[in-house]
Design a protein around this nucleic acid. Structure first.
Lengths: 239, 239
DNA sequence: CCTTGTTGCGCACACTGTACGCATAACTGA
DNA sequence: TCAGTTATGCGTACAGTGTGCGCAACAAGG
């Protein structure tokens, strides 16, 4: 045996990697990314930190995921998969769509980071979970009496409304979380500033000085009001 | 005269700054940021690049703006200011709201970067332009016959719908721009993949294989359909 | 045995936001 | 005219980012 001198890293010092499992898989990466996003928010997601959580180097992730953007697309699809689409109980399509919209809102609000990503991630509708969701919702609208083409339009309308409220709520909840206060506390603390700032605008001023209600339930009620109006408008098309 | 030796930078080499104008102001910074955002997109906006455009160092901007986030808040308010709210011609509140919504959509689509920011920027509704916009729209709904509280709900509903479609459209347009193709070209190129991917979903498949129409006008028509439904639903409340 | 392909990783590069402190200019008052 | 105060721009530096590149370790197939 010749004396091959590797300066320090000899066969004996080398860690003798075991490969019991693939140790890294796209699914695992996405799952861990979701956890990181949910607990620490969008700006905390870095490839290095994610890699560290998986006991891996940052660049190792790139074997399973082309991009950070692609990773986010996968995460978004995963979240869409959590939206619940009920079967059509009792022929009441409005109730079914309401449950679905309400579920979508809950999911968006639970994963507030998604709002900062929805505007960047294109082609999300090609993800498997998004497709399954859309397919089932199209079924709901078809059963309600819409033709396929109009069912598509109706679906887009409802989803646009849900995404719009979700985005707005998520923005609010994110700044709220950064402030470290509870929602009610933060609202109360903001009131004087709002009252002062709205002085030149009589209608806004009246709203700002108006009766204070529980902030979180007010958000929920507002969502329901708008959703009911959207569904009213759609129902009217069924004659 | 003693020989004070400053190594190279003597009085003569020093540039003798002239200050004809303040050279940097918050308004100027925001305006330049808007231009940069519109022409090169959100990820192209860095403090250094923005400073360079203004013939200033990156850190100089921080004398006029606390944060990059704050800068974005100012930019968002500026964009909201471009939304047009018509006066109530001919007592037709639906026409007025439609013009306003259509204008909002146009603005969001023109500044696609806003979609990636709306979900992060909190308290945007305290911006002066946003307030003016909301005040005037509340007036529209009040004139239509809504009480102030319900006018607020109606406004939120319409805006949620517009923001939802805007976000979705902006995401699409952004990836489109990155691809470098025209919209129709890109749609045609994507068709086969979409047809293939939708195979397990009969309704989506039917939609994907269906008659191809002009992509951009289809977007516009879809927006109008949903907006009309929302307004139908609101109109029904006026009895 | 050798080849070939897949996976993880260390290094390096160009770039980010922004805290800190200094230098300059404009304004103030005497 | 001169000193003192305040506002503004900027150079440097730090800790972080995404990710291209090429090497090392392994698995499978011939």
């Amino acid at each position: 045996m010749a004396a091959d001198e590797q300066p320090v890293a000899s066969v004996w010092t080398r860690p003798q990697r075991r490969r019991e499992q693939p140790a890294l898989s796209r699914a695992q990466i996405v799952a861990e990314a979701l956890d990181l996003l949910d607990t620490e928010g969008i700006e905390a997601l870095s490839m290095r930190k994610l890699g560290a959580r998986l006991d891996a180097g940052a660049t190792s992730l790139y074997r399973h995921v082309a991009n950070k953007d692609e990773l986010l697309e996968l995460a978004v699809d995963e979240v869409y998969g959590q939206i619940e689409v009920p079967d059509l109980w009792g022929r009441d399509w409005r109730a079914a769509v309401t449950v679905c919209a309400e579920s979508a809102r809950a999911v968006l609000v639970k994963h507030t980071w998604i709002a900062s990503v929805l505007g960047q991630v294109g082609l999300s509708y090609l993800g498997p979970n998004v497709m399954r969701l859309n397919e089932r919702m199209l079924g709901l609208f078809e059963a309600a009496g819409f033709g396929l083409a109009e069912a598509d339009l109706a679906l887009s309308t409802v989803m646009a409304y849900v995404i719009g409220t979700g985005t707005t709520e998520a923005a609010w909840l994110t700044t709220l979380a950064r402030s470290g206060h509870t929602e009610q506390d933060w609202v109360d603390r903001l009131r004087p500033a709002a009252i002062e700032a709205t002085k030149p605008y009589p209608r806004l001023h009246k709203l700002a000085t108006g009766a204070e209600t529980d902030a979180a339930t007010a958000r929920g009620d507002g969502f329901r009001y708008g959703l009911d109006r959207v569904l009213d408008g759609l129902a009217a098309r069924l004659g």
